[in-house]
Design a protein around this nucleic acid. Sequence first.
DNA 1: TAAAGTATGTTGAATTTTCAACAAAAGGAG
DNA 2: CTCCTTTTGTTGAAAATTCAACATACTTTA
Lengths: 219, 219
Amino acid sequence: MKKYLEILKKCALFADIDDEKLIKMLTCLGAKVAAFDKKYTVFAEGSAAKYIGIVLSGTVQIVQVDYYGNRSILSEMGTAEVFAEAFACAEISSIPVTVIANEPCEVMLIDCSHILHTCENNCGFHQQLIFNLMKDLAKKTILFHQRIEVTSKRTTREKLMTYLAIQAKKAGSDSFNIPFDRQELADYLEVDRSGLSAEISKLRREGVIKCDKNRFTLL
Amino acid sequence: MKKYLEILKKCALFADIDDEKLIKMLTCLGAKVAAFDKKYTVFAEGSAAKYIGIVLSGTVQIVQVDYYGNRSILSEMGTAEVFAEAFACAEISSIPVTVIANEPCEVMLIDCSHILHTCENNCGFHQQLIFNLMKDLAKKTILFHQRIEVTSKRTTREKLMTYLAIQAKKAGSDSFNIPFDRQELADYLEVDRSGLSAEISKLRREGVIKCDKNRFTLL
DNA sequence: TAAAGTATGTTGAATTTTCAACAAAAGGAG
DNA sequence: CTCCTTTTGTTGAAAATTCAACATACTTTA
């Protein structure tokens, strides 16, 4: 586990916990590491909501796929970010989303019940972990609000511009990369891919944005 | 505060805390009660994200209103439900939503920093409160997933049917009341009101649903 | 009770999206 | 480098949404 220490220290779940303690903790929590190739399923929809995941390398996507195969991308998680925590913490039986590896990646899996319920060793770090989990969940909720702000817009153009404005603000610059290809961006914005491509071209012709691959510039 | 005890006991925030302790706790937390008439603003967008709210009577709506005045209803909270906790817990400076009284209502307001940070009296209930907050936030996240499942659908018909199916499941019956009027339902589903009315009529004519005011029946 | 205001249903025109099909460009494997 | 696959852009037709305007039903209150 030591090789992952530098990454885990950046993880919000382990904020305010010192290195030495962190290593011990991982053993006590029964943390496991798993690797997945690109496109492989980390958690399948309907599987038990038991584990909290932490991205150690690569990225994973949280997606919902409906009856007709329509995909909706809820979020993308990169290094040191936590995923599936809401399902495990809410103690629901199965998860309503699919988590897939967006590129080759390693993830750490922790049985959430080990975090929530005090163990026989009475390790004494559960409180800090629960506090950190709470903060993490609060921040995730804020991200959902942001996503709704984007997808509640009625036209592809408005959705795209709202999304880009948020990304620019996040990057602190009018020029920034987005973590999605065209199809993924469409699945995040909840619009048709070809319509999105057309709208991007239109905005480019109008001189509103510049765009090269997944790098956008607001003009 | 005693008059609200029966309501507060039902509040998830105070789960596993006994009556006597709860009363003391409220004083220590500096809980205040405020009343609002219908349509009045409980929290305005942009105001400080300081307080957690608990509905004591009536209902409040969490809404986002964009630059052009388009309203989007994120959720509606009834008796004993908690709201605005995510913003307070994430310790962001201002809230990105508006909370309005949907009918005359009373709400309890608690300064979140009193929950998150141990007080000088060292009351010892913070841990339980934080645990409860974490569970509450996890459940809110699940509700957001559900809302996205609804609004990610591309047509008014699909959005409506997905929403009604979830409500039926929640009610445990094919017949149920929804907490929205037509305009509010449209603002929740992110669709046009008149289009929604037309779609409801169509579904009724086709014999897919029955509907009287805000009572729906799936056939 | 009457009047005024609010909510709901209906309709047609304008706008926008979706869908399908294809062309062009980019990327990867051998 | 070439072939094959994937991604992106383009287009037109069909479908759906939005918008505006109005009729009707329901509520509130004076």
